[in-house]
Design a protein around this nucleic acid. Structure first.
Length: 625
DNA sequence: CTAGGGTTAG
């Protein structure tokens, strides 16, 4: 009841230092940061005596509001009066500077401290973490122990948080051991921090074990594991845990941001809409995290217009909101819209960062806007001083490859200041296929095989390039080379949601109860395609009649099956939404185009790199597969 | 009257 406390304070006939301290600390612990700082200034200018508790009470307010200047003043006063010699005050200064991202001052104070206690060390761990220097935390922890300080619950949770951010499972496990040895692993903050560490290190099973052993779970425990399942691609586990939660615990707005990505990852519009309705009823959409996650969910479920309406209604758009929408237009092939939005964002005074540039470059790339893409790439470096990362380079290589500037793309890769990864070479390899440059393809494929020898899909890609050039002897040679590796390992699959049920189609899945109807329908489609002059040329290398291993073994044309299932089972007029775990093959792409015209239906297909919207025999990707 | 910790969106 800070308001009442202030009233009492104001009516006191005489206030001493303790009265002032009480009310200042009351303000800062209730989030009234500017009020705390104002009171502090009034106290000082009125000549009231300040002591170390005064400074300790105002510093958290400076830290929380990132009011560096006020903190600096307190620091100066502490040095002049010698109060900085008190460990507790120095600790508060550490946290203030670390919150204000003044890394240098934090370090300087820590080094000059005579007496360091467990709080000082914990503040430093947090500070390293905030500065992104995760790798230094382990060393700091060791130093701390050597200094004779035993990490307590606070130190442990801080360190775990750092190891989560760094994905250092080994260090995290060693802290886990420490917590068990010291009997603190069941304390809620520790258990939650351990779960977060395991989840971020992609070990959800271990996180689950901890979750099941915690008896007094709080909302953070639930959210951590639900979010853990989502981010590690276990959408079903995420949904089922969320259902469990609804039966015994009240979710909050953070829960929405943990569960929504699960719906987004499998493009489940029905699930997404259920969560939307729930969040709306509970008033969670006031939360900027939740509403951004909601827009992203609609984007990824292919409901671009709904996403846009919700985006427009956001009362406060931050960098994340804009980036979600820009990336959304990019995924759906609306490059021009993405650019317009990007400019609008800059006009509203929001500065793009590395991630938003990767969204806009991606958008240019998937709409074939080469000149614009290059312009953004330049602006990013020159105007915004952002160092391009692999993602950005990949977009440019993709752009140059698609437009046929293969030589320039190669030179671009060779001139990169950072080591190119396989995906960059794969972009160029796809370019070689589109523009039929076998010679360069061989050279590039060699790089890809060296970097990813296990990924058989790339051998198929090269074989297809040979085949399209009718270089059959080279196809044969390559086939012999890869013969024993089993091309069926990474199968593609597609899924579609019909009446709240997800139907998954894998290559040649004849087990589906509707198989006969699907086959019949697709036979009909193939016959009509032939009648209209679509020639199913045997242009794909591994499709030789003599060989069981062919392109289809890796695709199985699962998207075609899912589309057919949709046509047969969804009411007329409803769009058919299919999702695929890898790139759609050109065969399915052609078939989807044809079906959209033949049945007069809208087909929205999300593959691993973008959305394809088929209508009247055309696709929104305009050939930029 | 006083210092450090755990969940979330691109």
């Amino acid at each position: 009841m800070i308001g009442d406390a202030v009233l009492v304070f104001n009516r006191m006939p005489r206030q001493d230092t303790i009265s002032w301290n009480s009310v200042i600390s009351g303000c800062s612990s209730n989030g009234l940061n500017s009020e705390a700082i104002e009171l502090f200034i009034r106290m000082w200018t009125q000549g009231q005596e300040l002591d170390s508790v005064t400074l300790l009470s105002v510093l958290p307010a400076c830290a929380q509001s990132r009011y560096w200047f006020a903190g600096r003043v307190v620091h100066g006063y502490s040095v002049k009066t010698g109060l900085i010699g008190e460990t507790s005050l120095a600790n508060a200064l550490l946290d203030m500077y670390s919150n204000c991202s003044d890394w240098q001052s934090t370090n300087q104070i820590f080094r000059s401290m005579g007496q360091k206690n467990v709080v000082s060390w914990t503040a430093m761990i947090t500070s390293y973490m905030r500065a992104g220097l995760f790798d230094k935390v382990a060393g700091l922890l060791q130093e701390m122990v050597l200094d004779g300080i035993r990490p307590d619950v606070f130190a442990v949770t801080s360190a775990l948080h750092a190891f989560a951010g760094d994905e250092s499972l080994k260090q995290g496990k060693s802290v886990h051991g420490y917590t068990i040895r010291n009997g603190m692993e069941k304390l809620l903050p520790v258990a939650n921090a351990l779960m977060e560490m395991y989840v971020k290190c992609r070990n959800v099973e271990e996180a689950r074990l901890i979750f099941d052993r915690v008896t007094n779970k709080d909302v953070i425990s639930w959210n951590t594991l639900i979010g853990g399942y989502s981010r590690n691609n276990f959408p079903n586990e995420s949904f089922s845990l969320f259902s469990d939660m609804l039966l015994q615990f009240r979710p909050n707005a953070v829960t929405m941001t943990c569960i929504l990505p699960a719906a987004a990852s499998i493009s489940s519009l029905e699930r997404g809409r259920e969560i939307h309705a729930y969040a709306l009823r509970r008033g969670f959409l006031e939360d900027s995290y939740a509403s951004n996650a909601l827009v992203d969910m609609y984007v990824k479920c292919g409901a671009l217009l709904v996403a846009r309406v919700l985006f427009d209604r956001l009362t406060k758009k931050n960098l994340i909101s804009w980036t979600i929408m820009i990336a959304g237009y990019g995924m759906h092939g609306f490059g021009k819209h993405a650019i317009a939005l990007f400019e609008q964002m800059r006009g509203s005074g929001i500065e793009p960062d590395a991630a938003s540039f990767s969204a806009i470059l991606y958008a240019c790339c998937h709409s074939g806007l080469a000149a614009e893409g290059r312009r953004f790439f330049k602006a990013m470096q020159k105007e915004y001083k952002i160092e391009p990362k692999l993602k950005h380079y990949t977009c440019i290589v993709d752009l140059l490859s698609r437009t046929g500037d293969l030589k320039e793309a190669l030179e671009f890769i060779e001139s990169m200041p950072i080591e190119p990864d396989s995906s960059i070479w794969v972009s160029l390899l796809h370019g070689c296929r589109i523009h039929k440059n076998v010679k360069l393809a061989e050279k590039v494929a060699d790089k890809v095989f060296k970097l990813e020898p296990e990924n058989t899909g790339y051998y198929v890609l090269l074989a297809n390039i040979y085949a399209e050039a009718e270089r059959w002897e080279a196809v044969k040679k390559l086939k012999n080379k890869i013969g024993g590796r089993g091309l069926r390992e990474n199968t593609g699959y597609s899924w579609i949601e019909v009446r709240s049920k997800v139907h998954v189609f894998i290559a040649d899945n004849r087990n589906h109860p509707d198989w006969n109807r699907i086959a019949e329908f697709l036979d009909d489609v193939a016959r009509r395609m032939r009648q209209e002059g679509h020639d199913p040329k045997k242009k794909y290398a591994l499709m030789g009649a003599d060989d069981a291993v062919h392109d289809e073994a890796l695709c199985g044309h699962s998207s075609k099956l899912a589309v057919a299932f949709g046509v047969l089972n969804l009411p007329e007029g409803r769009p058919i939404r299919v999702t695929k775990n890898s790139k759609v093959c050109s065969h399915c792409h052609e078939a989807a185009k044809f079906i959209s015209k033949m049945c007069n239906r809208e087909i929205i297909l999300r593959d691993s790199s973008r959305f394809h919207r088929f209508e009247g025999g055309r696709c929104s990707c305009r050939g930029y597969l």
